[in-house]
Every structure is written in C-alpha cells, then in structure tokens.
Design a protein around this nucleic acid. Sequence first.
DNA 1: CTGGTTGCAAAGGATTTGCAAGTTC
DNA 2: GAACTTGCAAATCCTTTGCAACCAG
Lengths: 150, 150
Amino acid sequence: MINEFDLFKDFLHQQKLRWTPQRKMILDIFLSFDGHVQIESLYEKIRVQDPSIGIATLYRTLKLLVDCELVEAHSFQNGKKTYERMFHVRHHDHLICTSCGKTIEFEHPLIEKYQVEICEAYGFTLKSHKMELLGICNNCRMKNNNPPFL
Amino acid sequence: MINEFDLFKDFLHQQKLRWTPQRKMILDIFLSFDGHVQIESLYEKIRVQDPSIGIATLYRTLKLLVDCELVEAHSFQNGKKTYERMFHVRHHDHLICTSCGKTIEFEHPLIEKYQVEICEAYGFTLKSHKMELLGICNNCRMKNNNPPFL
DNA sequence: CTGGTTGCAAAGGATTTGCAAGTTC
DNA sequence: GAACTTGCAAATCCTTTGCAACCAG
C-alpha cells in the first residue's frame, strides 16, 4: 500500500530534489499528529529528537509537502499557519450545536456535486471544502423549552 | 433604519470609547467597498481623503469594528488579512483561492435546501452555516503551469 | 564531484505597541 | 481637565532568504 513516505520520495525524485534524514524526520513527526498542526508544536517535538534542526528547514520541508499535496496549509486570525494531513484521511462536514458544542459529522453527495459545479463555473480547481452547519440540537432545544424549528 | 454608523457609535459609547472623525472616515470608506477588502486598498483610499492618517489607526479601528461584529476578518496563505462587511448583507458562501486569496461570493439555493434537510434528519434547528470551497483560481493555475482540473 | 541542502543569522513583511501631543466628552 | 486617540517610529511576530559548510546521488 502506498504511503506518504513513498509519495514524498517520488515527488522529490521527480523534482530532482533529495531525500534527506531531516525531511524524513519532519514527515514522520508531522504524521504523528492528528488534525491541524501548528509549526510551533511540530518544531518542539522535532527538536526533542534532533535539537540541531533549524526552523528554516521545517518551513522549507512543509512547503514541499504542500507542493506535493500531502499537506494543506491554513491560515488563522492570529496570523499563524496550521498544517493539515491530506492523504489517507476521509473528508466530512460538520453539524455543530452552538449551545452544547455537540458535533455530528456527515456528508452529502449532492452538495458535493453542486460544489464542483460552482467551482467549474468560476474556473476554480476545487481542492477541498469546509462546511459547518450551526444550530441547536434537539436536547438543547428541549432543555431551553424552545419550540421546534424556531 | 439602523445603520452601521449608529451601531458603531453605540458600541463605542458602551465601551466608554470615543467617536472620532478618523473612525467615522474609516467606517465610511470601508463601506464603500464590496466584498472582501484588503488593508492596503483601504489605506490607499483613506489617504486620498486624509493623507495624515496613520496605518496604526486603521488597524486599531478595524479591530474595533470586528469586536462589535460589524466586520469579519479572514486570513490567507500570504499572511494578509481581509475584512468583510457583516451587516446589512445577504448571506453568501465563499470560493477561495488558496494560492492568492482571491475570494468569490456565491449562493446556491439547492445546497441551502439540502442543509435544511440534513439538519432536520438529525433533529437540529439550523441557525446559520458557513461553507468555504478552497481551490486554485484560473490565474494561479496558469501561473504555476498546472494543467486544468488536475 | 556536482548541485541540492542545511543551520545560522539577518532580512522581510504585516501588524502591534509605546509615547508625547492632540481630542473628545 | 481626565481619559481616550492619534501619528509616528520602533518593536514584534511569523516566515523567508543569503550564505558558507555540508551531504546525497
């Protein structure tokens, strides 16, 4: 089965770049995280294994991982970037209760289909999407004595 | 009819802050833009009217506008922020180029309809939603010499 | 060996902050 | 007049870059 290391190696080879111990280690540690990873946490954990590694190498490697589509970068308000694993993970959307925080994951094939159509209409190549439905769950509605479907 | 100026004034008053000509002017010019505004464009246009205004004042005012929920801030890959009007605008979703940050607003009635269905299926009362389609715009794809719809 | 890679430190760009002078209430 | 604001410049934060020494192929 294809794994991230082989994909990255192949990518580097194609681009006439090199497979180095630093790159291997960064990918390795990156994969040990779940969800969105901040440079900071990544760097800390990396330095435990090899305190000599430079932050520049981390940034450079992350950029390569983004280029080969193994990783996706996101930006947040605070100006920090977050990196997310993109391979061997299944996409899903979220239904979130704004009262208790309860979260349900779902997918809807038709919505996904329309998303593709919209992107094509605007000349975009769709890479991913994020959809959050915010509402009040049954439980919380009962508790607060609100009528259903307010 | 309630407008942004009154809301902002009230907000400032509540917080024991002051209504100044600079703040008025920044809000005024901000509202003259559509969609997502970059600090840069905003600052340029502001300096036309008053070249003495400092960038720090612009940042400070924008932060206040975000605090009082008249404006929403978004962040992009390039590390720049974008500001979006949040009041008296119809809800819409976003198509975002993850490379250059270009943003297109759209709505799709069928997607909205399915969202309601999903919520009903799970017993949620839908309050709002957020959908972002992340991709690469035509321009950036060309620039990077990538084939279309890779 | 050749050309890519590294760690370091310095540079860069966007945003924030300290401060003295100026305003608002 | 007290407290908040301003513009300025310097500081800060995260990220990128230049470079000489170092490695992978």
